[in-house]
C-alpha cells in the first residue's frame, strides 16, 4: 500500500478540529488562575505546619494523596510486569537474536570509561534527590529514574554486565512496596487512617523532618528505580 493510494481522511481531521474547538471554548470560558477549588490554598496554609515538609508538592503526593501514590505504584508495577510478560520467551531467557546489543561490540574507550565513572556518581545523585525530596524539588520519582539510568548505563555502554540480576531487582521492588504499605499500616495500628503521616513533623527545612514522609519517598524511589531498570533491561532484550 503506497502513500499515494491513501486519500486524505476527512473524518479524523474533522474530529481533531472539533476537539480543538471544544477545548478552546472550554478554556476560554473558565477564568484563568481562579479555579473553583480551594484545596490548594488550604494546603499552602497548613501543609508545611502539619507535615513539616518544606516542599508542598511532596506534602500533597505523600501526605494528602498517599493512597493515590500507592495506586500509581501499582500501575507502574502492572506495566513493568506486562512488559516482562510480552517480551519474555519460552524458557525465560531472552534470545540473543532479539537483543539490540549484538555480541562483541566495542563502543570505544571513552564511552566505556565514562560509563564506569558515571555510574557511582549517578547512584549518589539519585539517592541525594530521593532523600531531599521533602525539602527541594525532586523526590522519589525523579531520583528513582536517575537510579534506573545508573543501573542501565553499564549495559548500554557494554562495559560489563548489568550490576543487578533479576532476583535482586525483584527483591528491591517487592521490599520497597512492602515498606510503603507497612508504613501505611503502622498508622492504622495507631488509630489513624491509612497512610497518615507518622512521627513528629520536626523543624521545617531540616534533613530529618517531615515525619515518615522521607521514608515513604525512599520506598517510592527504590521501587521506581527497580521497576524502570527492569523495563529498560527487558526492552533492550538483555537477560537480567
Amino acid at each position: 500500500m503506497s502513500r499515494e493510494q491513501r486519500s486524505l481522511e476527512w473524518t479524523p481531521l474533522l474530529f481533531s478540529g472539533g476537539l480543538a474547538f471544544l477545548l478552546f471554548t472550554l478554556f476560554i470560558a473558565t477564568m484563568f488562575g481562579e479555579p473553583p477549588m480551594r484545596a490548594g490554598a488550604m494546603i499552602q496554609q497548613a501543609g508545611g505546619v502539619e507535615l513539616g515538609a518544606a516542599n508542598l508538592v511532596t506534602a500533597v503526593v505523600l501526605g494528602y494523596r498517599g493512597l493515590d501514590t500507592l495506586g500509581e505504584l501499582a500501575i507502574l508495577f502492572a506495566s513493568a510486569t506486562a512488559v516482562g510478560l510480552v517480551l519474555s520467551t519460552q524458557n525465560g531467557e531472552s534470545d540473543k537474536q532479539a537483543s539490540v546489543f549484538p555480541d562483541k561490540i566495542f563502543l570505544g574507550e571513552i564511552f566505556e570509561s565514562a560509563s564506569r565513572l558515571l555510574m557511582p556518581l549517578l547512584l549518589l545523585l539519585g539517592f541525594y534527590i530521593i532523600i531531599h525530596g521533602h525539602l527541594t524539588p525532586g523526590g522519589g520519582f525523579q531520583g528513582g529514574v536517575i537510579l534506573a539510568i545508573a543501573l542501565f548505563l553499564p549495559a548500554l555502554a557494554r562495559s560489563g554486565e548489568i550490576p543487578l540480576n533479576h532476583a535482586t531487582i525483584r527483591l528491591v521492588e517487592g521490599g520497597a512496596g512492602t515498606l510503603f504499605i507497612l508504613i501505611g499500616l503502622m498508622a492504622l495500628m495507631q488509630g489513624e487512617s491509612f497512610l497518615q503521616p507518622l512521627l513528629q513533623p520536626g523543624e521545617i527545612g531540616a534533613l530529618f523532618s517531615a515525619g515518615s514522609l522521607p521514608l515513604l519517598y525512599l520506598a517510592v524511589g527504590l521501587k521506581v528505580g527497580a521497576e524502570l531498570a527492569a523495563l529498560l533491561v527487558h526492552l533492550s532484550g538483555e537477560s537480567a
Partner: peptide, 21 residues
C-alpha cells in the same frame, strides 16, 4: 497551586509505564 503539580508528577510516571508497554 501544588495539587496539580503533584497530579502531573503522577501522570508523567504513569505515562512512562504506558509508553514502555
Amino acid at each position: 497551586d501544588p495539587v496539580p503539580q503533584a497530579m502531573v508528577l503522577t501522570a508523567i510516571v504513569i505515562g512512562v509505564g504506558i509508553q514502555a508497554l
